[in-house]
Amino acid sequence: MQFSEFQSTEQLNTEFADRVASLLATAIDNKGKASLVVSGGRTPLPFFKQLSQADIDWSKVTITLADERWVDKSHEASNTALVLNNLIQNKAADATFVELKTSEESAFGAEASVKQSLQQFSFPIDVLILGMGEDGHTASLFPCSEQIQQGLTSDDVVLAVQPTTAPHERMSFTLKTLLESQQIFVHLVGDSKKVVLDKALAGDKVEEMPIRAILKQDKAPVEVVWAAK
């Protein structure tokens, strides 16, 4: 695992956007297309806006989310809306965005239709950007959920999840899918997240802190990018 500390979130957003854009451009040069998986929440929004200005051939990039709450995109909790309003803008408006949320009432039983939607997406993932919760969850692999073991061990692409410490059913990529990425980033901001990161690195039990399954593996390169504020 590589750890990159930045002096400010502004520096992080600028340099991180340049790095991601370069990786996507290289993938396009090498195979004619590129894929990007992002995570929701408030932390990546300024980064999304920075990345959306990158001068690459966005028409050859497909984008999706590592996980999504099972709500309509008009809902305030929708990560899809955050991506559409902050990343699929400016030059990046030419990218193809593949939604994880489908028309089914429940995430449970919707895995097949989500996989059908993901046929538009270009696997393997070229660039994966994950966040991390205070409980050590990443994507929607929650330590509190009944589905955590399945999420960590399943050979399937996606999994419906119901956390007990957070609202809404979720659809999440499984650990297997995440680890098939060409490059993984964990994007963190704030001293509290550094405390959680240090705790994750100090232990080994993945079920307690699923982010450990990302940080402590040798299948895919991982870089943590962090700024205190």
Rank of each mutant, 00 (worst) to 15 (best):
K60D: 07
K91N: 15
N86F: 08
A81C: 08
K33I: 04
G131C: 06
Q50E: 14
G109S: 05
D55I: 07
S140F: 02
D135R: 05
K49P: 00
D67G: 03
V114E: 03
T43N: 02
S78I: 02
Q119S: 12
A92F: 11
K33C: 12
L51I: 07
V98K: 10
S122M: 10
F48Q: 01
S52E: 11
N86R: 10
K73T: 11
L141M: 13
S35F: 11
A81V: 03
K73A: 06
A110H: 00
L36E: 12
F121D: 09
L36W: 11
G136I: 02
S117W: 00
A93E: 14
S117Q: 15
A81K: 15
P44C: 04
D135C: 05
N90V: 14
L51D: 04
E111C: 03
A95F: 06
H137M: 06
A77E: 15
V37M: 12
F47A: 04
L87S: 10
L128E: 07
L51P: 05
E134V: 05
H75G: 04
K60Y: 05
F47N: 03
S106R: 13
E68Q: 09
L87F: 10
R69I: 04
S39V: 13
R42L: 09
L36D: 08
A81S: 14
G136S: 06
F123C: 10
A34P: 08
K33G: 04
L118I: 09
S140G: 07
D67L: 08
A92R: 07
T138L: 00
K101I: 13
I56R: 01
V98Q: 11
V114F: 00
F121P: 09
H75M: 06
V37Y: 07
F47Y: 14
V71C: 00
S74G: 06
H75N: 14
T80D: 12
A110N: 01
A139L: 04
A107S: 13
R42I: 06
L128A: 09
F123Q: 12
N85E: 15
R69D: 01
G109F: 01
S52Q: 09
S74Y: 08
G109D: 01
F48S: 00
S78E: 03
V38G: 00
T64E: 04
A34F: 11
S122W: 05
A93N: 12
F48V: 01
T102E: 10
K73P: 12
E76M: 11
V127K: 09
A34M: 10
F48G: 01
L82H: 08
Q116H: 13
Q50G: 02
S117K: 14
V38W: 02
L36I: 06
D126C: 08
G32W: 13
E105M: 13
T43F: 02
E104D: 13
G136Q: 05
A93T: 13
K33T: 09
N30K: 15
H137C: 04
G136H: 04
I129P: 02
V38F: 05
P124D: 13
I88K: 13
G131V: 07
V61C: 09
D94H: 13
T96I: 12
L51A: 09
N86I: 09
G40D: 03
L87A: 12
L118G: 10
L36V: 05
A95N: 11
N85M: 02
